[in-house]
Each structure stands twice: as structure tokens, then as C-alpha cells.
Design a protein around this nucleic acid. Sequence first.
DNA 1: TTTATTTTTTAGCCAAGGCTAAAAAATAAT
DNA 2: ATTATTTTTTAGCCTTGGCTAAAAAATAAA
Lengths: 218, 218
Amino acid sequence: MYSLAEENYIKTIFHLQQTKKGVVSTNAIAESMDTKASSVTDMVQKLSEKKVLSYVKYKGAQLTEEGKKIATRIVRKHRLWEVFLVDKLEFHWDEVHEIAEQLEHIHSTELIKRLDKFLGSPAFDPHGDPIPDEHGNFVKTEKKLLSQLHKSQFGICVGVKESSTEYLQYLDKKKISIGTKINVLGKEFFDGSMVIEVGTNQFFVSKKIADNLYVQTL
Amino acid sequence: MYSLAEENYIKTIFHLQQTKKGVVSTNAIAESMDTKASSVTDMVQKLSEKKVLSYVKYKGAQLTEEGKKIATRIVRKHRLWEVFLVDKLEFHWDEVHEIAEQLEHIHSTELIKRLDKFLGSPAFDPHGDPIPDEHGNFVKTEKKLLSQLHKSQFGICVGVKESSTEYLQYLDKKKISIGTKINVLGKEFFDGSMVIEVGTNQFFVSKKIADNLYVQTL
DNA sequence: TTTATTTTTTAGCCAAGGCTAAAAAATAAT
DNA sequence: ATTATTTTTTAGCCTTGGCTAAAAAATAAA
Ligand SMILES: [Mn+2]
Ligand SMILES: [Mn+2]
Ligand SMILES: [Mn+2]
Ligand SMILES: [Mn+2]
């Protein structure tokens, strides 16, 4: 059984090594967790002792297979609880992350098994992120960022990269959610900004906006 | 915001002062929480500082109004989650307590508000214990112990005093659950044992069994 | 009303998980 | 190839929430 602190480190390192490809630096972990590098060093050494990750001084950390398994279980719990909060308790997608951060640490495999069944074994969470199955397998989807589309292409919104309250509320205001069709009417090469069409609405989006929305083109 | 440890102390003291009427001793808390009296002294002094309880050295502790409010909120959460686990996830009533012990510490008033609504604002948990409303009011029910009934009286099972797995599983085996009608066919004055009828079944119950089952007589 | 027993508190120690400041290693710049 | 800068680790300290052993207070017995 891992402590709350340990679980949070494992989860953070898991997410970091997805993007940062491979080894994760002490500083990256510290920044991501809003803590100090010295604290990270301590914990990473401890988790290395426990064979949850491999760690080379001054080089960085990398989860072992065991570590990835633990991380995946936490991610599964987090996302299932988010589905519960949105589908059953009618929370809005920008309100659920903080609560799921707490719920993901509830220990009970039976609970998750039953929750999953109760929710109809969803494959994606409310933000379009895949929910690993009980064996830890993620579905592989090819999706691209809205910013990668060209003029006159269109895509279906399938997820968000950033899921801050501010960003999600912006999307709401613009009536964009999972499943929404988006037409690219124009694209400015200078700054990457776009003019898009959502339903009957046409409006301008900055590159920052377009860089955080995943779409599926068919 | 109170820590996990603080919340558990507050909850325990709340339950103890229900029965023990008033002030709760250091030793009683220690025994109930399976910890040492010296640890209790420390925590009780700290909670006294925080005005959660009043505490007189060598006399004992007693929750303040604020303390009772905190405790009530935790009890409400615990029991609502138990209803969720049984009604929605189809857990059995003897399996939910441990999980609810964890879930009761999730912090979010909005979550509880919505969970309560989702469950249809239940008044009782799966063990027949009343769920305080959002203002902390418990419904007052007059119930008595099965052991207090006389020969040829009958009662409807409305709850259990003990809710250990062993006891709940015994009740299951005997097909007794909330709402079950129980006829007292005979009562032995020497040891308080009874012969009761449940459905078409007639069997013997010890005083210990009868002492832990709440019934309503009309 | 002393004496014995039980209950409670105090004193001192420990592990987990933080922090700051200083040292050391790695990397970048001259 | 040095020197400067950045990154990372180490050393030492703090708080929380435990523990044991000894002291003190309250209660029960004689
Ligand atoms: Mn989330
Ligand atoms: Mn999510
Ligand atoms: Mn319970
Ligand atoms: Mn209960």
C-alpha cells in the first residue's frame, strides 16, 4: 500500500514521462508538483528503494513496470470518478478535477470494479482522455490538435489538452464540447490564429486556444 | 480544514458522547480508536486549542457546538456514501463500512449536496442509522431492541446496533434485513434468549443477538 | 485517613514529508 | 580549458502524529 504522497509522486512522474519521453528530471517533478527539488530527491530515492522507479543520481527517474502499473490504476480511478461526477451527479466538466484528485486515492479494487460497471465501462473521461481498462491498457486514438488543421478542413472535438477551469469555461461559452464539429474557415500563418465555425457561429481563436483542443478528422 | 487524524478524533468523540452521555474520557477514546492514551491527550489538547471541544485535565473532553457540527457533517457523508454503495453499486450491507470510512473524508460540500439528491435524499443508511440533513438534524425515531420485546409481541427490523461483518452476515443467513417482520414466540427469563419467527422460519436467538437488533413496534 | 490501584499526563523519542541554505555535479559560456 | 551558470544533492531543521516509560493526579480499598 502506498501513501497519499507516494501515489501523487508516481502519478506525476507517469504523466511527465509520457510527454518528456523517458527519464524525468528532479526539477520537472518539483515544478509540476509545486514543491522543492530537495523534497523530490528524497522521495525519488525512497521510491527507488521500493522498486517503483529506477533512479540515477543527477540523471533522473523513470517508472518501472510496477510503477507504471500503480500509476495506471490511479489514472483509471481518477477518470472513472470524473465520469461518475459528470454523468451521474451532473457536475460540469470544469468542476470535477479537484474532487477526482481526492477520490483517486480511495483504496478498494471492488469499488472500482463496480463503479466501472455502474458507469457502463466508459472508454473516455469527460475531457476526452482515455480510461485504461482493468489490465492497464489504454485505447490508442489518432487525434490531432485543432491548430494542426488547415483552412477548410474540419474536425470533431474529442478532447482537451489543457483542462483548466478557465479553458473549459471558455469552450462552454463558445458551445464547444466533446462531439462538436468545428470548421476551419481561415488560418493566419503569422501567429497561427484561426477563424472557425461552430454550429452557425463564426469566430476568431488564438493559437493558444487551438493548441489545446484535440480533434478527430476522418 | 481539518486533517484526516483530526476528523477521525472528532467523529469518535461524537459517537462516544452519544452513549457515554456527556464528557468522554481519554481512555475511552484511546480504546475506541485503537491508539494510546498519551496520543489522545496530545490531540485532545490541540483540538481544545482549536475550540472544537472543551477539555479539562483529568476530567475528559466534550465537543463544542462547532465540534458537533463537524462531526455531524462527517457522519452525514459516511452514511450517504453507504447508501450509494448499496443502492447504486449493489454492495452488500456488510461490505460498505470500510470504504465509507475513506469516502467520508472527501472534502466538497457541492459533492455531498449532489450525491444526496442523486440518492433521493435518503433518511436512513443501509444499517438503519439516520442520516442527518444538511443542517445537521437527525430524525428522531422511537425504536427498541429486539431483546426488549415480550413473548407474542412482534416488531419490524429498522436497524442494527452492532454492524460488524459477522453479525450482518448472521442476519443475512437468517433472512433478516431492514423491514423484516419478527414475531417473538418465546422468551427465556434466565438468559434472555428467545425463539422468534421470521417469515415461515422459527429459530432460537441468544440475548447477544437480540441486544443488537433494533425493531419498531406499532 | 492512609495506602494501593487506576487513569491521565508529561517527557523524550521516532518516522514521514516537508523546508532552507550550502555543497557538489553537470552543463554552458568564454 | 577554464570559468560561470544551472541543476541536483546533502545537511540540518521543522511539524504532524505516533510511541514508551516515568511522573502525577484521581479514585478505590483498607
Ligand atoms: Mn482530472
Ligand atoms: Mn479528466
Ligand atoms: Mn459505517
Ligand atoms: Mn452505517
